[in-house]
């Protein structure tokens, strides 16, 4: 039985999932299932969230103008909605990574004292 609450871990994930989603579409456009899969694999399963929470998170980024989407309908196979980062999203990503790096470095230094 873990000592820390499940809610704490959930909040950590919630606070960082949009940053990860934005980073995942920063280089190439990607569709939902691909994003979900990469997020899970690259995070070693940490972001093993319900896919039903990831899609609204992606759409929130779209509402903020950080990503844009379009449908691709192949001649064979399923139509897919692709997401790609916008210029505004790129600026937001750089800014958020800066905050994240400062937080991670600061937290690490503090945590070292308690090991």
């Amino acid at each position: 039985m873990p000592e820390i609450s499940q809610e704490w871990t959930t909040e950590l994930k919630k606070g960082s999932v949009q940053l990860c989603l934005l980073a995942l579409v920063a280089k190439d456009q990607k569709y939902g299932f691909q994003i979900v899969k990469e997020l899970r694999e690259l995070s070693d399963g940490f972001f093993d969230l319900k896919e039903g929470t990831l899609y609204p998170a992606l759409r929130r980024l779209e509402e903020r103008g950080f990503v844009e989407s379009h449908w691709v309908e192949p001649e064979t196979g399923v139509p897919r909605k692709y997401y790609r980062i916008t210029e505004r999203g790129r600026r937001a990503l750089a800014e958020a990574i800066g905050v994240w790096d400062r937080m991670a470095a600061g937290t690490r230094r503090v945590l070292e004292t308690g090991r």
Binding site: Y31, G32, F33, V36, K37, E51, Y55, W71, V78, P79, R80, K81
Partner: peptide, 17 residues
């Protein structure tokens, strides 16, 4: 419609996987 279409696309991919 857009939401349902995207969910259908995702579920199709996920079921295949």
């Amino acid at each position: 419609l857009d939401i349902l279409r995207e969910l259908r696309s995702h579920l199709g991919d996920s079921a295949t996987a």
